[in-house]
Design a protein around this nucleic acid. Structure first.
Lengths: 183, 183
DNA sequence: TTGACTGTACCGTCTGGACGGTTTATATGC
DNA sequence: GCATATAAACCGTCCAGACGGTACAGTCAA
């Protein structure tokens, strides 16, 4: 099992995300992360020699998580011959709600060292591009993926400009639209 | 004419947005804003007695701009009997590209004092809710509005995970989908 | 014995904000 | 018509605190 013990390194990254989610990216200090992770400041600096390394760690873990998730969806899709896009979108819905590492890492990095997002840019754009291009209607697929981004943004910044009771219908509609693309 | 002279106050708010766009929300300091606005630090603090006031000013101007834009679209719509949603969406497309005050204000405030967004939350959610509910298919309208948010986010953080050459087709498709809602 | 930390003390820099001074515009009194 | 008063708009400097980072001695389990 890969989820046996959360290594201190991961604990620290989790703590960093929690701080960003709760207090804003501007309050992401090494001290705050240490306190949140119940580790000393020296302990944080042992794993991440400086703050840039910490931010880099957040961005890298985010990319790894997205990559794994999409790869898993693709594997499932090819396994039972179902279309990929709905699977990916469903994953996104399931993950939303919990403060997710994607948004937090983006916010944190963009606040202080936007250039750290350069590798993420390439990775994300090519990943989603590939995903959309694999469907019969790439433009429609992109629009749905953008809608998912928007939903994430609104949750991330705390506006549910989508009220809770509309979340379920939106989810159903987006999924059915995703299926229609393959019709 | 209301656009006669850009008051120092507005110059300062513009400068703040520029700083956020160029260097990230974490680099939004009073000194940086002063330098960008070609005003002394004391000058900035004359108009905004502290940093919270500056952030509040950004958020308030953002709401005013959105409110005015949507009101204008609604006025145009009722004037010639055309549907509102496509007009609003067209405005959003036209505004994108230039670093817009909406995103910058959101980023800046969320970084340091997320609670400053509380009034914006209410305003934006009720505004977009009203807009969507005024269409024959609120769910579809919400999805399109979310897609616009997503597009804004991706431009904002510098990922065009939508490549430039797809922007035009996406624009056309979203607009035609917006029209279909009324069909 | 080594790796993974803790804890404390400390330094240099940056930043928000306070403060007092200075220019400019406008109004008032004579 | 001119001096004076007054307030608004702005400048430049200073300071306390926060933050990133360093250094180093000590703990403790495997």
């Amino acid at each position: 099992m890969t989820t046996s013990k959360p290594s201190t390194r991961d604990t620290i990254l989790d703590a960093a995300e929690t701080v960003v989610a709760r207090e804003g990216s501007g309050r992401l200090t090494i001290d705050a992360v240490a306190a949140e992770a119940a580790v000393s400041k020296g302990g944080v600096l042992y794993h991440f020699p400086n703050k840039i390394a910490l931010l880099t760690g957040m961005v890298e873990r985010m990319m790894a998580e997205i990559g794994a998730e999409i790869a898993a969806a693709e594997a499932r899709a090819t396994a039972d011959g179902s279309p990929v896009l709905p699977l990916v979108i469903q994953d996104m819905f399931n993950r939303s709600g919990t403060h997710d590492s994607v948004s937090m890492a983006l916010l944190a990095a963009s606040a202080e060292h936007p250039e750290l997002l350069d590798p993420a840019r390439e990775f994300l754009s090519s990943t989603f591009q590939r995903l959309a291009d694999a469907t019969p209607d790439p433009i429609a697929a992109q629009i749905l993926l953008l809608a998912m981004d928007g939903l994430k943004l609104s949750i991330l910044l705390g506006f549910n400009h989508v009220p809770d009771h509309q979340l379920q219908p939106i989810r159903d509609r987006v999924l059915s639209l995703a299926h229609e693309i393959y019709a």
